[in-house]
Nucleic acid binder design. Structure first.
Lengths: 204, 204
DNA sequence: CCTACCGATCGGTAGG
DNA sequence: CCTACCGATCGGTAGG
């Protein structure tokens, strides 16, 4: 009954550790201690450390595939479909910045393996987004010199790095009176719109 | 005579390893094998593994401080000062993408320590750049709603992640006939200009 | 800068 | 899911 809960606890602890200290920097002992079990118990649920890593990555990407449609429909009811879509991606990482750190680390640790995974998880809705962008270009709302695939890629990179690395670089924003994360996200959104729309100078 | 060369060889090998496999994922033995010396010889030049890490980070940031002024003066002689400045940052990481991977990993591994370092290495010319941006805003060339510090931060993040993670995500750019890196950089530059200038729709 | 070596910790196994 | 344990590798030391 609480057997599946053990697996979930291990996945949660491992995700947090892998995101913050990296895969190589995390021992199975540390994860076991976090959950409060003996180290060999991990092996009962995940045959090897590498298998635990795959499971952590799977669960994170699964959440992307499950949560993003919901966030998208909730966010794209407004007047601006692209801003809503971006807000959905932002929400996903804002909900747990460790997701951004984990994915960044995996891309650095295993570029080739991640390429295959992202091809499966990112490409489906990449096609949808770029189709909408090309429609916008045909209608004259979206900048004609914009490269749809490259633009989406850079926006995802921007959101990812903003959550994974942003808190570190926040010191370079000294005169901030308001919340620093809010200020970062506001500028991120502004960059996205200004680089997408022709009339973004007067958005409202 | 070739004693300082040994130190340099170790630094080069360590930078490459730390960038690609991470600090925790790299053993001193692997670095020693790369250079062709015995493992304890590393300890002769760097008292601990942690000291080697600091030296690697120092040498990378030193190169930033030494090369960027040269790249800046070479790049800002054109008509567009900001595009030239961005090109300088791009050149720095293009010269060796491992620099982007190393800095990204260090930000993930040691956020607090990196905050202090970046405060010293990034803040000096952050002030210069934002001053120019505010001048541009006063002259009406730069978008008035742009947040100077946050914009520069995001552009640096964009260049960094484009070199550190871009090759991984390149599969999401399937219909690319021309060189994929070139296409990525062209769109990066376009995003930068479009998000900065009011009249970026007609740049030339 | 090398050989020889050390205690600690690693991922994983045996057996229950 | 635990106790007991193992070979391999880790960063680092001793001594030259």
């Amino acid at each position: 009954m609480n057997a599946p809960d053990m697996r979930t606890q291990l996945l949660t602890a491992a995700t947090r550790r892998f995101a913050r200290q990296g895969y190589a920097g995390t021992s199975l002992q540390a994860i076991a201690d976090d959950v409060g079990v003996a180290k060999p118990s991990i092996v009962y649920w995940f045959p090897t450390k590498a298998a635990l890593r795959e499971a952590v990555l799977d669960s994170t990407l699964d959440r992307w595939q499950k949560e993003l449609p919901a966030l998208l429909t909730a966010a794209t009811t407004g007047p601006d479909r692209f801003t809503g879509g971006l807000a959905a991606v932002v929400s996903f990482f804002q909900e747990d910045p460790d997701r951004a750190r984990l994915l960044t680390r995996e891309c650095l640790d295993r570029p080739e393996a991640m390429r295959e995974r992202l091809r499966a998880h990112l490409n489906p809705w990449m096609g949808v987004v770029t189709t909408f962008i090309r429609m916008g270009q045909a209608e004259g709302r979206v900048r004609p010199d914009l490269d749809p695939e490259a633009w989406v890629l850079h926006l995802v990179l921007l959101v990812l790095s903003s959550f994974a690395l942003g808190p570190v670089a926040e010191v370079t924003l000294p005169p901030g009176k308001q919340d620093l994360e809010q200020r970062r996200l506001a500028e991120l959104l502004r960059v996205a719109r200004a680089s997408l729309y022709l009339d973004a100078g007067t958005p409202r």
